[in-house]
């Protein structure tokens, strides 16, 4: 289903969706992001990797304003982050976020998780919201669980629902923050399969992950971070063919040995 229909917003490949300039962030005295420059073009599939504590999750959380930053700019097509809450909300509506811990709303059914923002943010009527939600639940291959509650689903199923929930708002950029790190090994594949299918529709993706197989198959750009800096930014081919920065090389060796 996902593989057939191109994403409606994937047509224009020239305009960047998000531009990050000289981004710096501190947690107290700890300098966690240092002079980050990154452009997310329309249709890009960027994988952000690096050792833990390198700032990759913080970076992705800055992109949709979940974390504040102290210096630099994050510009969207129509607005930029951090100006005020209204502009931040406007930017957030252009991004979809998938969390490591799924973060489904446990008191709502799967369907209600997906329709909540459609109804309360985009103000769609109930029926239309449910149609949109069912379309995305079908795309992540879990329509039969629409009436179930999150606690009745496996981790992999919950994460697929979380992906559907984010897609419902038709975001221009999908952000993934280690989407498979909290999953049992046998559930990782079902989530990665959904993400691979999603990537083939041409949707713009930024994904923080340690899944190098996924990166090799899907990413067109790899961003390697270490100690708060982007140490290497390369095409997927370039990154995996051995021309990488020594620290990236070391990281790859460690990750791939598993």
């Amino acid at each position: 289903m996902l593989a057939q229909a191109p994403h409606p917003l994937s047509a224009d490949q020239s305009m960047p969706h998000v531009r990050i300039h000289g981004l710096n962030k501190w947690f107290g005295a700890v300098h966690v992001l240092k002079d980050i420059d990154l452009t997310i073009r329309a249709g890009a599939r960027i994988v952000v990797c690096g050792p833990s504590g390198s700032g990759k999750s913080t970076l992705i959380r800055c992109i949709n304003g979940l974390e504040a930053f102290q210096k630099g700019k994050i510009e969207y097509e129509a607005t930029s982050l951090g100006k005020n809450t209204r502009e931040t909300a406007k930017a957030r509506r252009q991004t979809g976020m998938v969390f490591q811990g799924f973060n489904l709303f446990p008191h709502l059914t799967v369907l209600a998780n997906c329709t909540l923002a459609l109804r309360r943010v985009l103000l769609k009527p109930a029926r239309e919201a449910e149609e949109i939600a069912m379309r995305h639940l079908t795309a992540v291959r879990i329509p039969e669980k629409a009436k179930a509650y999150p606690a009745q689903l496996s981790g992999g199923q919950q994460q697929r629902v979380a992906i559907a929930r984010a897609l419902c708002l038709n975001p221009r950029v999908m952000l993934f923050d280690e989407p498979t790190s909290a999953l049992d090994p046998e559930m990782i594949k079902e989530v990665l399969d959904v993400m691979i299918a999603l990537a083939r529709t041409g949707v713009t993706m930024v994904c923080v992950t340690h899944e190098m197989g996924f990166a090799r198959e899907v990413a067109d750009e790899i961003v390697f971070m270490d100690e708060g800096r982007i140490v290497e930014q390369a095409s997927s081919k370039g990154f995996f063919s051995g021309t990488a920065h020594p620290r990236a090389r070391l990281f790859l060796d460690t990750v791939l040995r598993h």
């Binding site: 949709n64 304003g65 979940l66 909300a89 957030r92 509506r93 991004t95 979809g96 976020m97 969390f99 811990g101 973060n103 489904l104 709303f105 909540l116 923002a117 309360r120 943010v121 929930r165 984010a166 708002l169």
Partner: peptide, 12 residues
């Protein structure tokens, strides 16, 4: 994460 998920969905 509950609040963050709501924020990421654009809810006030």
């Amino acid at each position: 994460g509950q609040r963050e998920a709501g924020m990421a969905l654009g809810l006030s």
